[in-house]
Amino acid sequence: MSGDDAGGRADRFRSLHLGTYADLLRFVERRVPGSEAEDVVSTVFMTAWRRFDELPDDARPWLFAVARKTMANRTRGWLRRQALDVRLGSLESPELSDDSAGAAVRIDLERAWKALSAADREVLALVAFDGLTAEQAADVLGCRRSTFAMRLGRARKRLQSALEPAEPDTRWSSRPHPLKEQQSWTRA
């Protein structure tokens, strides 16, 4: 590789970093505690540099897929001891403090969210949180687009069912951990 080629490759990599770092950091922080996220992101970019020639034009799903594998490969005991879940935002979010109606909606959503399986939460999060299209999300999970669409459809149905009023249920009152501790990794 000539110096110019190497320099051009480096510039393209810097552009990739500039264009995807924030999204990648958010993607990882949704799944691991913030203190871990930067390190995971660094490892993803190191992998991306080594395999730069393999990156597709739409690099974001590729980077997210590497991030999922990186997180899955670093199972820590102290994380395993907590509930497996895509993380949720803290209940103490300032935006909710003056909006009791909004807070009530959110509590219903949280209950519904927690009633879902980790697999359902993952497909929903890829679209609702990470903002991916079905095709991109399928790339992240390494499955066909049709498979992802089917999984998403089922997860949405189960979400809707969980949101519908039901008989009083004491499941939630016995939850052992406060919400903000519900943090861990999704499995690759």
Binding site: H17, A22, F27, E29, G89
Partner: peptide, 22 residues
């Protein structure tokens, strides 16, 4: 509607995080 549960909603990297990553 689910976006309200997003733990990274509105999250932007800080200047220090950009510096470290770059």
């Amino acid at each position: 509607q689910l976006a309200v549960l997003d733990p990274a909603r509105g999250r932007e990297p800080t200047a220090m995080e950009w510096t470290r990553s770059q």
